[in-house]
Nucleic acid binder design. Sequence first.
DNA 1: TTTATATTTAAGCATTTGCTTAAATAATTA
DNA 2: TAATTATTTAAGCAAATGCTTAAATATAAA
Lengths: 123, 123
Amino acid sequence: MKLETSCIRAEADHTQILRCKEDLNAVSTSIEAISKIMALAGNEVRFKILFLLKRETELCPCDFADILEMSVPAISQHLRKMKDVNVITTRRDGQTIFYRISKKNEDFLTAILSNITFEKKIA
Amino acid sequence: MKLETSCIRAEADHTQILRCKEDLNAVSTSIEAISKIMALAGNEVRFKILFLLKRETELCPCDFADILEMSVPAISQHLRKMKDVNVITTRRDGQTIFYRISKKNEDFLTAILSNITFEKKIA
DNA sequence: TTTATATTTAAGCATTTGCTTAAATAATTA
DNA sequence: TAATTATTTAAGCAAATGCTTAAATATAAA
């Protein structure tokens, strides 16, 4: 079994390359899942939604629209993406649908959100 | 000063909406910075690169190309994006350029990468 | 100084993303 | 029941993303 290589440098460590490939293989499912959550949180609007949900526990689409000054459909589509992968869950109360962070991802998201720092007020 | 509202429901808590807007305002710089890093890590290829850098300390573009079985230019462009915002740094050794996770973001990325779990080997 | 190697850069292009507007659902109220 | 309100869905479109190929840079070796 020959190893396909891109560079021919003498220092290339073929053992290391193979080990890395094996390592990646052993975590592929986990990497895929986490990077999917990261991609969702990597959008600033969605990150703000998660930040707000963490602070307020639950909010509805039109709350987000008011707070973020965006259209309701735009918000709804962001919420849908996060709901589709169970990052957030819903609860209906009459016509209002409340969103909250799902238990499943709470710890992971809390760890990330805890890196948010408040700015000092200037004058 | 009148508050622009999307929904007219009686339960809408205008105090909460205003507080949320103020809260967001107080963390806007931080949110912007973190969600930018998240967006970078949200790409599966880049997330794998970060995972590999964490394990191997430093690697060069052609290592990544071999490990991830991708073209060198494709890898190079991913590395550039992360270098542009100082998520990773470089060191030259002859013709080879070694990349590593920057000190500045090491803790944050380690926290995220620590959520990666290894899969059980089946049979 | 020519040649080879490692990397980056740039142009081109298909795919994805995130909004807008308009229409469809669903629950409440008159 | 009809009208109102909250939300979702869908179509359309501009902008961003991530690859490919080809060319440009930079260092090292012949």
